[in-house]
Design a protein around this nucleic acid. Structure first.
Lengths: 190, 190
DNA sequence: AAAAAAAATTAAGCTGGTTTAAGAAATGAC
DNA sequence: GTCATTTCTTAAACCAGCTTAATTTTTTTT
């Protein structure tokens, strides 16, 4: 039952079978097709989502009506609009499946109750969030030190699995590039 | 004793006086002058730092030998190289006081021991880190949707206290702009 | 298998923001 | 209070990456 989910937690904290059983009461499994939405602009993001299988993207629509992708989540990554989730504010984002996916959702209220009942999960999320901050810090450094060309080359050599399963125009959007420019860079490299 | 520190924790979790006493054993207070270093490039970042009073900046030296500032920390903010702190890796960053400051340091080992003895602190840091992720997500969105001019105007109207106490060229560096361009933008606005 | 829709490419012209260089103003140290 | 250093300004030339627009290729739907 949800092996990616359980294994991921057990990588960071001890969790006996009884605790697992308790934990499962707080999650809602979702089977989704390609291009289904978990969140739309102006809604409050009521859950935090774990990608058991598949791929999610998060984007907002900018003032030129472009979809700006700000995040992807692959298998065993978490995804939410943290600001909306924590403070119950309407979100500017859409969260959508990129492909057929199995998602585990934990609602705001379940999240709070789960943390109270299972202190290991408090620890787990402290570690996960700390790692997310570290990742954000690193990505941020890349933005300061690399040109857009270097940023693209770095990304596409570091994460070839993305280039596989995500269309090129989405990668361009995520990296803050125009599809035309990515096309030019690819030509240049060959 | 360290009112900013204790009040900040009590904003998020309950902490009785006995717990406060236990907690204080894990922290090392530091009184620093202007421009003193807490971390230099190639060192492992052995502590997480709380700004009780004053101001810190974090920067790295890029391949053109510019100091690129990636973060500031004002009163009651935390600062560390999370990647270095968590995984004991050498850091690419410098952490330095911008002005005379009072800093509370918690070392890697103290941090771990503290979390084991005081579960409230596990919760506190889970919340703090979650808020840091939310802040990073928001800043990231701004980078996608704003031009550099808009980003500068937004920053300088949102955080006038910074423009007060941090020299202009540091703000330029933090925002990823040249000092010349900031100068031009300021002229434009008046 | 054909039609429709979505994604990727190509190329020319343009612009937001950098680079370079020099001088002016502000700050800190003695 | 003066000298040395740091910070800020001005201006012109330049370029990385965008815009626009048209064409081709790939994918999806029927």
């Amino acid at each position: 039952m949800y092996p990616n989910f359980i294994n991921h937690i057990r990588k960071y904290v001890d969790l006996d079978d009884h605790s697992v059983a308790l934990l499962l009461k707080y999650i809602t499994p979702l089977k989704l097709k390609r291009k289904e939405f978990l969140l739309k602009e102006a809604q409050v993001c009521q859950s935090i989502y774990f990608v058991e299988k598949g791929c999610l993207r998060m984007y907002f629509v900018d003032n030129k009506l472009n979809e700006q992708i700000t995040q992807f989540a692959l298998e065993h990554w978490w995804m939410t609009d943290h600001f909306s989730f924590q403070d119950n504010k309407p979100s500017p984002y859409f969260i959508q499946t990129v492909e057929k996916s199995e998602i585990l959702a934990i609602s705001t209220t379940s999240f709070e109750a789960m943390l109270r009942e299972l202190p290991q999960m408090e620890r787990y999320f402290r570690i996960i969030m700390q790692r997310a901050v570290a990742a954000a810090q690193l990505r941020n450094k890349y933005l300061y030190e690399m040109s857009k060309e270097e940023f693209y080359q770095h990304f596409s050599t570091s994460f070839p699995e993305f280039v596989q399963c995500v269309p090129q125009y989405m990668i361009a959007s995520y990296l803050g590039l125009t599809p035309q420019y990515v096309s030019e860079l690819r030509k240049k490299k060959l």
